[in-house]
Amino acid sequence: MKAQSGVFDGIFFLLVVTVSITMMFVFASQYGTAQTEVLNTYYNLNYISALMKSIYYLDVGQLSQIKFGDETNPRIGITDPYYGMNCQSLADFNNTLLSDLVKRDLTDAVLDNKYSLGGNPGISAPGKTALRCALYEFMKPFESAGLKYFLQIQIPRSVQSPDYAYATQKLLPSGSYPLVNQSDDNNSIVTNSINMTIPNTLIRTCDDLKNYTTQLYVVSIPFRIFDSKTLTQDSSIDSNLNNTFVLSFCMWPSTEQLK
């Protein structure tokens, strides 16, 4: 009888060991997952920040030889709505900074590749085209990995608005109006991503994506234009802020089904 109880003790010990090891393996399988996710997010935000900073330095003429949507380098296997995008036209703007060209384009508060003030006819300032060519080049790794993105120009709310106070502190686009591009129904979004539609939702700001994806990367920077005259008729926006825009970049993983 004593030997039998000894064997039972041994088997019971084995059972305890098995349960303990199972718990340890479950713990180990989860170990580092949260840190890895934080590091991935940090890298993605770092990448976008680097992209946004480089906008201030790039020479527009250097973007003119980027092969994008032209006949020599079509994007294979997809319908490209941007076919015919003419980065070559930027060759006329040698020795012009990309940020300066975008500011010039935005002088009339419309990002439409030209500016016109005081009733003068539009003068060519392809800020939107230059931005798209630069984004196409820089976002290649993420686009081929299935992420979508857009860059948006927004007008912050007035100082009196609590939303704007929040926006200025956090540099989030929450308290900002999208700058509606009057010449284009596709508002102020600058993107090269395909099929930017969410079921039952019109994407107007990064906020619209919050309920759509749990992985939304947003970086916003102030973008000041000193000689901007008329930006909006909205009386709720403080006139002192009229020449300060917010440039917001949003990126999120696509959930499209591969065919």
């Binding site: 030997a3 000894g6 041994g10 010990f13 084995l14």
Partner: peptide, 10 residues
């Protein structure tokens, strides 16, 4: 002795 085997294995 019989209980030693599962103990050592564990």
């Amino acid at each position: 002795i019989p209980s030693i085997f599962p103990l050592v294995t564990g």
